[in-house]
């Protein structure tokens, strides 16, 4: 076999490189994986991914693709530390925390730009200032929505101690407290928000989305109504062992998102089993879930604004500092 002259060899290798770079990300991935399991919470941010799996959007990336839910933070942490979970939708705070503690979790994108609302049966409540003196129920105290709300209340000059807090263990319990009248307002994420509306309708009641927490938060940060609470994260070992795969996954998610938004019923039907949630509730919640596929680095100011707010209250929640450049995988 002849050795090609070095100039020709250089031109040939350059041409191959250019062609490879111009190919879709999925084709740049190494050989397809045998199997790939995504993990996510049984909540709004997982709808797009569960639908993409059901639609076979990752068939070029791996032979067998599955979506499984994690039910609580302990299960998530155990899955990540044991190495079972490699590509997972998780709360952004938890990802920053684990990254800063050296676990090798990196943020790929934001699967939602925020899905928390303050619900009430009282149409007179329309702004954060109207919450003064009211009772309010939270499913997760000291979690991101609670922390963002504290900022929103401070901006509206409403002292926290002017609110009567009614504790709730889960969003479903908070819905119950709101509908039974034991709390005048509730801070709820999607799809619990939609469930509250639907249950109220069946009971001859009315509940309102009084305050969009993302919008109020955006007024404070000046960065728009964006609170990227959850996104896709990848473990470094998986990422390094499979170059190009994360780019291909992200491309597939970006291609799926418009279909989910355009046809929520079909997406909900496909995702309902995987998420273990009734399809009609998922379908109605999609328009309010601010579903996203925005790359993490494109939202870095919004991530950091949220992390700073969290760190002001509980620095350990994000691992004591803002995550550095390496955290933002795409």
């Amino acid at each position: 076999m002849h050795d090609l002259p070095s100039r020709r060899r250089f031109l040939l290798s350059s041409a191959i490189s250019v062609a490879a770079l111009s190919m879709p990300a999925v084709l740049r991935a190494k050989t397809p994986l045998q199997g790939l399991t995504f993990y996510g919470p049984p909540a709004g941010p997982s709808i797009t991914l569960a639908y993409a799996v059901a639609e076979g959007s990752f068939s070029d990336i791996a032979g067998e693709v599955a979506f499984k839910t994690w039910r609580d933070p302990d299960e998530l942490r155990a899955g990540l530390t044991s190495g079972t979970m490699k590509v997972v939708i998780m709360p952004s705070n938890a990802a920053a925390n684990l990254y800063n503690r050296g676990l090798g979790v990196r943020m790929v994108n934001a699967m939602t730009l925020g899905l928390n609302y303050i619900m009430t049966k009282d149409p007179a409540i329309k702004t954060p200032a109207d919450l003064r003196g009211r009772s309010i129920t939270f499913p997760f105290r000291n979690d991101t929505p609670d922390i963002l709300l504290r900022r929103v209340l401070a901006a509206a000059d409403v002292p926290e101690n002017s609110l009567k807090i009614v504790n709730a263990a889960t969003p479903i319990e908070a819905v119950q407290l709101l509908l039974s009248g034991r709390a005048e307002t509730a801070v709820l994420p999607e799809p619990a928000t939609t469930m509250a509306e639907m249950r109220a309708l069946q009971a001859g009641q009315e509940v309102y989305r009084a305050i969009n927490i993302q919008e109020e938060w955006g007024k404070i940060t000046g960065l728009g109504p964006v609170a990227p609470q959850a996104g896709l994260a990848v473990m470094r070992d998986f990422d390094e062992a499979n170059p190009g795969v994360i780019e291909a996954i992200q491309s597939a998610i970006e291609a799926t998102l418009p279909k989910v938004i355009a046809n929520p019923m079909e997406a909900a039907k496909a995702a309902a089993n995987a998420l273990g949630m009734p399809a009609p509730i998922l379908a109605k919640s999609i328009p309010h879930s601010a579903l996203s596929a925005d790359r993490a680095s494109s939202l870095r100011p919004q991530f950091e604004a949220m992390y700073k707010a969290v760190a002001d209250v509980e620095p350990r929640a994000i691992g004591g500092q803002l995550p550095d450049d390496g955290f933002y995988r795409l």
Binding site: M198, R199, Q202, A203, M265, A268, A272, P278, A279, P280
Partner: peptide
Amino acid sequence: LATWRGALWPFDPKATALMTVSGLASVFSG
């Protein structure tokens, strides 16, 4: 009625059962 009134589509027996029981319970307990 719950399915029609709540436009519970795509039809899912779990959602219909949940909304039916929840609606009846709220009217009785209310």
